[in-house]
Design a binder for these strands. Structure first.
Lengths: 184, 184
DNA sequence: TTATTATGAGACAACAGTGTCGCTTTTGTC
DNA sequence: GACAAAAGCGACACTGTTGTCTCATAATAA
């Protein structure tokens, strides 16, 4: 594939991302994508064999996970960073793939997400343990708190498509976690 | 519609419920329903004009909400009841419409769910205020805790389709809320 | 029993979406 | 400029789904 081809492929993924974010997985058709990209069927199919292929490629771009916790920093600082990143994710509802992801998972791709989830959980547990060790955090049940952080986030993410959030929902999320974790 | 018709209609809804729970909203076709119910197209269309109609009827059956809090009981008792009900809901993943609901909402029916959510939130806030008043609960930020209870639940519900939960996830949910709300 | 209404079957046309194929145009290289 | 490879077009056949319509059968009331 030449230079032009690579750019076209990127453009396809970009448009596809927006479509999936907007409509979910099942509702997006190759024909939709043709319209959005301005390509013909023949042109589009030259790059991707179908929506599943595109979506799975978008996912692997999306989930390049940094598993390792940088232990040179203080746990409290890392927590702040992660929470503020999460907060802005919650607020920009434009680009959330959440609905598409659940549909896609329900089509028989559970394992991928079970894995993602598992790793995210481990990462949080690691951070919590580290913070407890350095006495920055309270001696909470790390698994329990990790569950809270992850699933509460997922719920928020889903509902942000249904309800137009006030900023407060994201605030509440961050506050709840801080209040549970941090020493007062 | 005669007696037989009423029964058939119920049977259709029952099968449809299972299909929606299993496959989400978009993935269910009238043809699927024909197979499941054993009815022909003509027979099925005599009762329902399409999947949207069936789904919206199922929803209105599902969400008959009891908004009122029974103030004669202690808040702590009500909380226990509600949490244990939620816990069993989380565990029986068979019958969860969650995925279908998000798809359906995304098709332009946000308002219905925004309303449901609003009322559920009010109900929780009411309960929390009552408990705080009677000194059974700590003086938490009621809106913040209501958000936690609702969205954390939604997240769990969604992921229960992706991950086969150990009971612990539901336990963590209940424990987190109790620890935040109840006086130690 | 007979007439009437409710229930159900299955054929049908229309449509939306798919994936492919042969052809044209564009791009880049010698 | 000539040529090959890459990129793109749009028609096509096919499949799955929809909603309707006519006819058959079952239930029920006179």
């Amino acid at each position: 594939m030449g230079d032009k081809g690579t750019k076209t492929k990127e453009a396809i993924r970009r448009e596809a991302y927006r479509l999936f974010a907007e409509k979910g997985f099942k509702a997006v058709t190759m024909t939709d994508l043709c319209e959005r990209t301005g390509l013909s069927r023949g042109g589009l199919y030259r790059y991707y064999a179908g929506t599943e292929e595109i979506f799975s490629e978008i996912l692997s771009e999306e989930y390049v996970i940094a598993d390792r916790i940088e232990k040179r920093e203080k746990a409290g600082v890392i927590l702040e960073d992660m929470l503020s990143a999460i907060k802005s994710e919650i607020m920009d509802k434009e680009l959330s793939l959440s609905l598409a992801i659940y549909e896609y998972a329900n089509l028989g791709n559970q394992d991928f997400f079970a894995d993602i989830n598992e790793r995210a959980k481990k990462r949080w547990i690691g951070l919590l343990e580290y913070g407890i060790e350095t006495k920055e955090f309270r001696a909470v049940d790390t698994e329990q708190v990790a569950d809270l952080i992850l699933y509460y986030y997922q719920g928020l993410r889903m509902w942000s498509r249904v309800i137009s959030f006030e900023e407060s929902a994201a605030e509440h999320y961050v506050n709840t976690i801080k209040q549970i974790v941090l020493q007062q």
